[in-house]
Amino acid sequence: QSYDVTDELPLPPGWEMTFTATGQRYFLNHIEKITTWQDPRKAMNQP
């Protein structure tokens, strides 16, 4: 797995990073009650 500086940034409020039983990373948004494979920190860093 390649290193990404985004991995060091804190998640936005309400978000949690977790893993499936097979080790795949995904993200939970407790405020909007959604899950996604997309890292919400990457969207924050788009110009």
Rank of each mutant, 00 (worst) to 15 (best):
Q1K: 15
Q1T: 04
Q1E: 08
Q1A: 04
Q1I: 14
S2M: 14
S2V: 09
S2E: 07
S2Q: 09
S2I: 13
S2H: 15
S2A: 07
S2W: 05
S2P: 04
S2C: 08
S2Y: 07
Y3H: 14
Y3Q: 08
Y3L: 06
Y3I: 15
Y3P: 15
Y3C: 15
Y3N: 15
D4C: 15
D4A: 11
D4W: 05
D4M: 04
D4F: 09
D4V: 10
D4N: 15
D4S: 11
D4L: 09
D4Y: 15
V5I: 15
V5G: 08
V5W: 03
V5Q: 09
V5C: 09
V5N: 13
V5D: 09
V5P: 07
V5L: 10
V5Y: 06
V5A: 11
V5R: 10
T6L: 10
T6I: 13
T6Y: 08
T6R: 11
T6D: 10
T6E: 08
T6V: 12
T6F: 11
T6P: 14
D7L: 08
D7S: 10
D7V: 08
D7N: 13
D7K: 13
D7R: 09
D7F: 06
D7T: 12
D7P: 06
D7A: 12
E8V: 10
E8N: 09
E8K: 14
E8L: 07
E8C: 09
E8T: 14
E8M: 15
L9R: 15
L9C: 10
L9F: 11
L9T: 15
L9M: 14
L9I: 14
L9H: 13
L9V: 15
L9D: 15
L9Q: 14
L9S: 14
L9K: 12
L9Y: 13
P10H: 08
P10D: 11
P10G: 10
P10Y: 06
P10Q: 10
P10K: 10
P10E: 12
P10L: 07
L11Y: 04
L11F: 11
L11R: 01
L11V: 05
L11K: 02
L11A: 02
L11M: 12
L11W: 02
P12D: 03
P12L: 02
P12A: 04
P12Y: 03
P12S: 03
P12V: 00
P12K: 01
P12R: 02
P12H: 01
P13D: 14
P13H: 14
P13W: 07
P13C: 07
P13V: 12
P13N: 13
P13G: 09
P13I: 08
P13F: 11
P13T: 11
P13L: 10
G14A: 06
G14S: 05
G14C: 04
G14M: 04
G14H: 08
G14T: 03
G14R: 03
G14N: 12
G14P: 05
W15M: 02
W15Y: 06
W15F: 06
W15L: 01
W15K: 01
W15P: 00
W15T: 02
W15G: 03
W15H: 01
W15R: 03
W15Q: 04
E16F: 06
E16A: 08
E16N: 03
E16Q: 13
E16H: 02
E16K: 06
E16P: 01
E16W: 05
E16L: 06
E16S: 11
E16G: 07
E16R: 05
E16I: 07
E16T: 08
M17I: 11
M17F: 08
M17D: 05
M17V: 12
M17Y: 07
M17A: 13
M17G: 05
M17Q: 15
M17K: 08
M17R: 07
T18R: 15
T18P: 01
T18N: 09
T18I: 09
T18K: 15
T18Y: 11
T18A: 14
T18Q: 15
T18V: 13
F19N: 13
F19S: 10
F19G: 05
F19H: 05
F19P: 03
F19E: 14
F19D: 06
T20P: 00
T20K: 01
T20L: 04
T20S: 10
T20R: 03
T20F: 00
T20I: 01
T20A: 06
T20E: 05
A21K: 13
A21H: 10
A21D: 13
A21P: 11
A21S: 14
A21I: 10
A21M: 11
T22M: 07
T22S: 12
T22W: 06
T22Q: 09
T22E: 13
T22N: 11
T22C: 13
G23F: 00
G23W: 00
G23I: 00
G23H: 04
G23K: 05
G23E: 04
G23N: 05
G23P: 01
Q24M: 04
Q24I: 07
Q24L: 06
Q24G: 07
Q24K: 09
Q24E: 15
Q24F: 03
Q24W: 01
R25V: 11
R25P: 06
R25I: 13
R25E: 07
R25W: 03
R25T: 06
R25M: 07
R25K: 14
R25L: 08
R25A: 07
R25H: 05
Y26M: 06
Y26H: 05
Y26I: 05
Y26F: 07
F27K: 01
F27T: 01
F27M: 01
F27C: 01
F27Q: 00
F27A: 01
F27I: 00
F27W: 09
F27G: 03
F27P: 00
F27E: 03
F27S: 03
F27R: 02
L28M: 15
L28I: 15
L28W: 05
L28Q: 07
L28D: 00
L28C: 09
L28H: 03
L28T: 10
N29A: 00
N29F: 00
N29L: 00
N29H: 07
N29K: 01
N29P: 00
N29S: 06
N29C: 00
H30N: 11
H30T: 10
H30S: 11
H30V: 07
H30F: 04
H30W: 05
H30A: 09
H30E: 09
H30D: 07
I31L: 05
I31T: 14
I31H: 15
I31V: 10
I31Y: 09
I31S: 08
I31N: 09
I31A: 08
I31R: 12
E32C: 12
E32T: 14
E32I: 12
E32G: 11
E32D: 12
E32Y: 15
E32K: 14
E32P: 01
E32M: 15
E32A: 15
E32L: 15
K33R: 12
K33D: 04
K33G: 15
K33W: 01
K33N: 13
K33F: 03
K33S: 08
K33Y: 02
K33I: 00
K33M: 07
K33P: 00
I34T: 12
I34H: 06
I34Q: 09
I34R: 07
I34V: 10
I34C: 11
I34P: 01
I34A: 06
I34D: 04
I34F: 14
I34S: 09
T35G: 04
T35M: 04
T35I: 05
T35H: 03
T35W: 03
T35Q: 03
T35L: 02
T35A: 06
T35D: 02
T36V: 02
T36N: 02
T36C: 06
T36A: 05
T36D: 01
T36G: 02
T36L: 00
T36H: 00
W37D: 04
W37G: 04
W37K: 06
W37P: 04
W37L: 06
W37F: 12
Q38N: 10
Q38C: 11
Q38P: 01
Q38K: 13
Q38T: 10
Q38R: 14
Q38W: 10
Q38M: 13
Q38G: 07
Q38F: 11
D39M: 01
D39C: 03
D39L: 03
D39S: 02
D39I: 04
D39T: 02
D39H: 08
D39P: 03
D39R: 04
D39A: 02
D39V: 02
P40G: 00
P40L: 00
P40H: 00
P40Y: 00
P40Q: 02
P40W: 00
P40A: 02
P40D: 00
P40V: 02
P40T: 01
R41T: 05
R41D: 01
R41Q: 04
R41I: 03
R41W: 02
R41A: 04
R41M: 02
K42N: 15
K42Y: 09
K42A: 10
K42W: 06
K42T: 11
K42I: 13
K42D: 07
K42E: 12
K42L: 10
K42S: 08
K42Q: 10
A43Q: 12
A43W: 15
A43I: 11
A43D: 15
A43N: 15
A43H: 09
A43F: 14
A43S: 14
M44V: 12
M44L: 14
M44S: 11
M44Y: 14
M44H: 11
M44R: 12
M44G: 14
M44I: 07
M44Q: 14
M44F: 15
N45L: 10
N45P: 09
N45H: 11
N45T: 13
N45A: 14
N45R: 10
N45S: 11
N45M: 13
N45G: 13
N45V: 12
N45Q: 07
Q46H: 05
Q46M: 10
Q46S: 12
Q46Y: 07
Q46T: 12
Q46C: 13
Q46I: 13
Q46P: 14
Q46G: 12
Q46E: 15
Q46W: 12
Q46V: 14
P47G: 03
P47N: 01
P47T: 09
